[in-house]
Design a protein around this nucleic acid. Structure first.
Length: 606
RNA sequence: CGGGGCGUAGCGCAGUCUGGUAGCGCAUCUGCUUUGGGAGCAGAGGGUCGUGGGUUCAAAUCCCUCCGCCCCGACCA
């Protein structure tokens, strides 16, 4: 039996000053974790119990579709060179040398290693499909660790990898993961949503994230309250409402207008008495293609045009250009490519580069032209717009995209705004945007790794084929942090029974009273015999101290053994609702069991 | 890496501007009282003031170096 008096549960009355988000504060205060360094935490007793329960659920569910492995965290360079990621990943990978000077890294993710195993062993289509997974420590040299366990440099991940013969097989593996992930997060008591996600510059056809809404999260999610549409803002699209075009002036051709001091969109809109939606905003970037090392292309000029009331989504732009990095153009570059200053940039008169291979990825650009001109789709077909004239203090009006200027690419590169129309066909809902934390991600990889590492099997015709892969991740600590973020108050937090370090704490209000003590001991033993995880608070402290601690540390149920015990009664407190009921001592075990059972059923039915 | 902030007892902080005995609350230890919402009284322990250097009779305090941590921006579980 676990006796609080013998355990190391260092609770804090005050949170350390540098903890900002709720989960970070409470994990520290409740004695779950202690910080070792930036993005590095020691997990103490309670955290370890909770994480073990989470991993047990993950394992149980994953075992229904896959096989558990355990790979090294310390990895040689060679597989990463074969895939090209030794150079591509850059600073985010921890690198080291062994005593002989050989390059090694700390495991960041394991596509290369799993694919290497497959390459060495898989020979026939008859051996497919395979789903291999592991629960293992990952190391990432994050540019900025933050928010306690939410973003760290060492964390536990369940990662799995699927190998299939064809697209249909990949669909099955992907859907199996989708189903299993939903079961895992439900059983962990999370209120989550599955959203469409960006698959990044790496290609890949489909990508879905599992998100838990919380202000501590770093992602923005657009979702429709009417239908089931939900997407990461990096990927989200929307339907725009109808717009009234401005009337043309003069002969309807572009007309130069003196607009002194009107550098900002709001100034321009006020000057012309138009809505920002009728103004063309310009954002000028330099884009880097390829990655440092091989195949590196130097900075390319990119001019992005979109509606004045819209903003550029850099993730979409990166994907569109197959670029690895973006930075704003500097003043000399603006002068070179636009011959005009910031605030008065416009598309008219630019010479757009042409794409050498329209529609394919990665895009290549033909010679000729000065700058890659990207136009947001919402500008297509517009009339009589206002834009910068590429000279100080002048704008153009009566500008029609397509008639008065052309472009290299027209695509969706803007951020969705809250209130815009849901993109689902026939849906009239208006999108809402909320912050969320990512707890899982499932991803169709395609043949990137099987190709680069040379994984082939023979199909039924004896022909060599390249298996198609998926990769799938769950952040174990993030399940715990997300659970805390979604269930806390001023006094502490409460975890779902499934992942709480203990299910019930038996609080003996006064251990100096031998009768109370005996009652508490017996009750705790009976609860344990009934299969519950019990913590007996037998500390020689005042009742108030023990109540405060119990409220703090995330245990969902508490039984007070106190003044009514002599009358054969104890008190069952439900932390989530802060409500208590008196219960006859002899019925206490059954009641707790019933509550726990109900909660588990509720979570599993989500 | 760019920008902002911080580093003084286990935790939260004051002291730094204006150099001169290192302090407060909580926690800890001992004793007595108390015992259903972070007890009271009495006593005690605990500090290379992040590091290194400089200025000075004298540095937590002024100057420089380095290190660490937190927050805001580009990455991801």
């Amino acid at each position: 039996m676990h006796r609080w008096s013998k355990l190391f549960i260092p609770t804090l009355r005050e949170a350390p000053a540098d903890a900002e988000v709720a989960s970070h504060k409470f994990l520290l205060r409740a004695g779950y974790i202690r910080q070792l360094g930036a993005g590095l935490y020691n997990y103490l007793f309670l955290a370890t119990r909770s994480l073990n329960k989470i991993m047990a659920i993950v394992r149980e569910e994953m075992d229904t579709i896959g096989q558990e492995f355990y790979l090294p965290g310390l990895l040689p360079k060679e597989p990463w060179e074969e895939s090209g990621r030794w150079g591509a990943i850059g600073e985010n990978m921890f690198r080291l040398k062994d005593r002989r000077g050989a390059d090694l890294c700390l495991g960041f993710t394991h596509e290369e290693i799993m694919t290497g195993i497959a390459r060495g062993e898989l020979r026939s289509y008859k051996q497919l499909p395979q789903i291999w997974y592991q629960i293992q420590t990952k190391f990432r040299d994050e540019p900025r660790p933050k928010s306690g366990l939410l973003r760290v440099r060492q964390f536990i991940m369940k990662d799995s990898y699927s190998f299939d013969l064809d697209e249909a097989g990949l669909d099955r593996s992907f859907n199996q993961h989708d189903k299993v992930y939903r079961a895992i997060f439900s059983r962990c008591g999370l209120r989550f949503v599955a959203v469409e996600a960006d698959s990044g510059a790496m290609g890949g056809s489909q990508s879905q994230e599992f998100m838990v809404y919380t202000d501590a999260g770093e992602d923005l999610i657009a979702s429709c309250p009417v239908c089931s549409y939900a997407a990461n803002l990096e990927k989200a699209v929307s339907r725009l409402g109808p717009l009234e075009e401005m009337a043309a002036t003069g002969d309807g051709k572009p007309e130069l207008v003196h607009t002194p001091g009107c550098a900002a969109i709001s100034d321009v809109a006020a000057f012309f008495k138009i809505s920002p939606a009728s103004d063309i905003k310009c954002v000028a970037y330099m884009a880097e293609r390829g990655f440092r090392g091989e195949g590196h292309e130097k900075w390319l000029p990119v001019a992005v045009f979109l509606r004045g009331d819209h903003s550029v989504n850099e993730a979409k732009l990166l994907g569109l250009l197959s670029a690895s990095e973006l930075r704003p153009m500097q003043a000399e570059e603006l002068a070179k490519y636009f011959r005009g200053p910031a605030g008065y940039l416009g598309p008219v008169g630019l010479r757009p580069k042409e794409t050498a291979n329209p529609g394919s990825s990665p895009l290549e650009f033909a010679g000729g032209g000065d700058v890659i001109v990207v136009v947001d789709k919402s500008l297509e077909g517009r009339q009589n717009m206002v834009c910068g004239a590429n000279q100080l203090d002048y704008h153009l009006r009566n500008v029609a995209p397509g008639r008065d200027f052309s472009w290299t690419l027209a695509a969706d590169i803007r951020n969705v705004n809250e209130g815009e129309g849901c993109p689902s066909p026939g849906c009239a809902g208006k999108l809402v945007v909320g912050k969320a934390v990512e707890v899982g991600h499932i991803f169709k990889l395609g043949t990137k790794y099987s190709n680069s590492l040379g994984l082939r099997v023979l199909d039924e015709n004896g022909k060599e084929v390249t298996p198609i892969m998926g990769s799938y991740g769950i952040g174990i600590e993030r399940i715990l942090t997300a659970a805390i973020e979604q269930s806390n108050d001023a006094n502490g937090f409460w975890l779902p029974v499934s992942i709480a370090p203990f299910t019930v704490v038996v609080t003996i209000t006064n251990v100096a009273d031998a009768a109370l003590r005996a009652t508490g001991e017996n009750l705790a033993r009976d609860l344990e015999a009934a299969g519950l995880d019990v913590l007996l608070d037998d500390r020689d402290d005042r009742a108030g101290v023990k109540f405060k601690d119990a409220d703090l540390v995330g245990i969902p149920y508490r039984i007070n053994v106190g003044k009514k015990a002599s009358a054969g009664q104890v008190e069952l407190v439900t932390r989530a609702t802060s409500t208590s009921v008196d219960v006859v001592l002899s019925e206490a075990v059954a009641l707790v069991k019933k509550r726990v059972q109900e909660e588990i059923l509720l979570e599993e039915s989500d």
